[in-house]
């Protein structure tokens, strides 16, 4: 049983009501480990940046709140996962990559090779020139062509 209630206001903001009846509007849902363990450790943070509640797992929430939390996460978190590299404009940077992601096809401009960072053993975090982070969760699961293209930058 969670000690708070979640709802959505007319303005589309997430509203959290604590057990004591305090109401916080504009609550943000934040993952503590968005890459390493996205499903563990989720915080509900007030508009002022204060932590209001901590969830060990989203799955622990009751159905109604869980959907709200998941919805909020979906509209807040933006870290496209690259599934395939289709084409790269050049092997020298800056280079424009056409990629397929879990959020559809797009292209990104890689400013320099140091913007590709290894994250743990298999994951790569790629930051484009606009500061958007793209994730490759498992290098080994990419197809051969993508790996070959990527290899030239690693």
């Amino acid at each position: 049983m969670t000690p708070f209630r979640l709802s959505r206001s007319a303005s589309g903001r997430l509203v959290l009501t604590t057990a004591e009846g305090q109401v916080h509007e504009g609550v943000a849902v934040v993952r503590a480990f968005p890459i390493g363990a996205p499903d563990e450790g989720v915080a509900l943070v007030s508009a002022e940046g204060r932590e209001l509640a901590w969830l060990d797992r989203i799955a622990d929430l009751e159905p109604g709140s869980r959907e709200l939390v998941e919805e909020a996460l979906a509209s807040r978190e933006f870290m496209p996962e690259i599934r395939r590299l289709v084409r790269v404009s050049s092997f020298a940077t800056p280079s424009t990559w056409d990629v397929e992601t879990d959020r559809g096809d797009t292209s990104l401009v890689l400013g320099g090779e140091e913007d590709i960072r290894r994250f743990g053993r298999d994951a790569l975090l790629i930051e484009d020139i606009h500061g958007i982070h793209y994730l490759i969760r498992d290098l080994g699961k990419l197809d051969r062509t993508s790996r070959k293209l990527l290899d030239r930058f690693l």
Partner: peptide, 21 residues
């Protein structure tokens, strides 16, 4: 509105080492 633990250069120091050249 919320300053967030966006993955930052410094916090990645360990892993950066693996890819930096």
């Amino acid at each position: 509105r919320v300053s967030l633990p966006v993955v930052r250069r410094s916090s990645l120091a360990d892993n950066v080492a693996a890819t930096k050249r």
